[in-house]
């Protein structure tokens, strides 16, 4: 039983990383209708940027912020230079998926060329472990959880109280209507990509801290968990993605204890498939959106 609780601690850490990632992924998808397979690769790239910073003496936490900013800028640029032109050309929904797949390949292997195939790690302090009940956290893990919570709150505030956040929700709910009611689509799209890049960057560094290694395939593997969380919550549902992150994160770690480590992802993904059998649009399906999917 105490094992179950202690792994709940790991689950919360994993969920805290999944949260910004799934929120960023789904926020950008719902506003721009591009399913971004390169999201994992963007995480990896930003994680290595943070690594580069720490190599040059920048402390880890400022490095995480730098990685986030780098993620935001590069993601915004990628949209302007590559994805938006393809969309303007009328590339189909599935065509855009293939574009992001190609982008993922390019980013991932550029990282491999620059930093090599073997994994690196951040300089971690270690420090005193913190006991909460039978859960044990390192100080870094606690900060990771804190960052996750802060990001969740910021996202909520952004969507609820800012003009740009409201505009994003409007575009997500009905792109055509939002456009005709005077929302500047270009600004919203730019913002969505930048925000998702920021979250990818932060999540990349958080993941690197949590598993204490950073490798060029790391985001690629994690992408599946992000997708699982986003799909579970209902694609395009930001709050759904938060719940999805929590469920998938905890499931992954708990099933590692209840079953054995190797089966953990299987259990988590099997739950996802089962949920979709019962609720084909995820847990938090909103209004039936009519989007150009074909």
């Amino acid at each position: 039983m105490s094992q179950v609780i202690s792994s709940l601690g790991f689950g919360i850490v994993t969920a805290s990383i999944l949260l910004p990632a799934a929120v960023g992924f789904t926020l950008q998808f719902s506003t721009t209708n591009v399913l971004n397979i390169a999201f994992g690769a963007q995480m990896t790239f930003a994680a290595f940027i943070a690594y580069l910073c720490t190599q040059h003496g920048v402390p880890l936490w400022p490095a995480m912020v730098i990685a986030g900013v780098f993620g935001a800028l590069s993601s915004g640029l990628l949209n302007r230079l590559l994805l938006a032109p393809f969309q303007r050309r009328g590339t189909s929904f599935f065509g855009m998926i293939v574009v992001t797949i190609a982008l993922a390949l390019v980013i991932e292997y550029v990282v491999e060329i620059i930093w090599g195939p073997s994994s690196v790690s951040y300089p971690l302090q270690g420090g005193k472990a913190v006991h909460i009940g039978s859960m044990i956290f390192s100080q870094e893990q606690l900060i990771v959880i804190g960052v996750g919570v802060v990001i969740a709150l910021c996202t909520h505030a952004l969507l609820r109280y800012t003009r740009i956040g409201k505009a994003m929700r409007a575009v997500a709910a009905n792109p055509a209507l939002a456009k005709s009611s005077g929302i500047r689509a270009q600004r919203v799209t730019d913002f969505a990509w930048a925000a998702s890049g920021l979250m990818a960057g932060m999540a990349g560094v958080m993941l690197g801290i949590s598993v204490s290694s950073v490798s060029y395939t790391m985001g690629d593997t994690f992408l599946i968990e992000i997708i699982a969380a986003a799909v579970l919550g209902g694609v395009g549902q930001v709050y759904g993605a938060m719940v999805g992150a929590l469920v998938i994160g905890v499931l992954l770690e708990e099933s590692a204890i209840v079953l054995s480590g190797a089966y953990a992802p299987i259990a988590a993904f099997a739950v996802l498939i089962l949920v979709l059998m019962v609720r084909p649009t995820g847990l938090f399906a909103g209004t039936a959106k009519v989007k150009g999917i074909a």
Binding site: I227, P265, I266, L272, I273
Partner: peptide, 23 residues
């Protein structure tokens, strides 16, 4: 499932297969 879900779920199934056989 809707088109976008289909693509993602198939991707997940592919990984699931690899994990299952490895485990």
């Amino acid at each position: 499932l809707r088109g976008d879900y289909q693509a993602m779920v198939l991707l997940v199934i592919s990984i699931l297969g690899t994990y299952l056989v490895s485990a």
